[in-house]
Amino acid sequence: MENYILTVKDLTKNFGHIHALNKITFNIKYGDFFGLIGPNGAGKSTLLKILYGIVIPEAGDTFISGLNLQYDYKKIKYGLGIVPQDDNLDEDLSVYENLIIYAMYFGIPKKESIKKSVELLTFFNLEDKKNSKVADLSGGLRRRLMIARALINNPSLIILDEPTSGLDPEYRQNIWSRLRALNESGVTILMSTHYMEEAEKLFKNVIILNHGNIVLNGSIKEITLNKKSLEEIFLNIAKN
């Protein structure tokens, strides 16, 4: 377990009679760029929401950085950066204030949070939008701000739920390059997508989820070695 930043064992979640997740088990190594792939309704968001505490599972254990999610979720949050599928920026505040307030939720001292916010605005090319209202940002900029916000506490694990969906190719590449840079700097990334091209380009290891079950688990290289493209594998799975 010491080698893993995230361990998930037998995670199960039902919504009424929908089996969103069936006994999901997998691990993520420190420094990994880990992908979660699956068609619509596969259970990707449910899995990620359990990891960040918005959904409570019926059964199963989760450990993040060696801490049990069930008991230590507050401690865990200090080391976690989260980008949910639906954006929930604070519409009443400016771009800069969104970062400052978020830092406050983490208890980061004011001086430090100002420095970090400026740094993040630069990293995500948002300096000239610093004082704009969030409501005035385009979809692509909002997504960048969501990711910037998730980095305010210097997390060691970032969880992103389809961060590039709905973005044009330029914005998508823009986000890819920043995520890659973060991963190279030592941050572990867990990210979901249903773009196979994106998966092949970014991920080191993946699980493919369908109807709440893991149907494939391994490194991108292994998976694509003898078969054809990830796209075909994915389409085959989605058909069943």
Partner: peptide
């Protein structure tokens, strides 16, 4: 409407 609670719950604020 604005999902502020969910956003805050992503932090150590319970």
């Amino acid at each position: 409407t604005n999902g502020i609670y969910e956003a805050i719950l992503l932090t150590p604020v319970g």
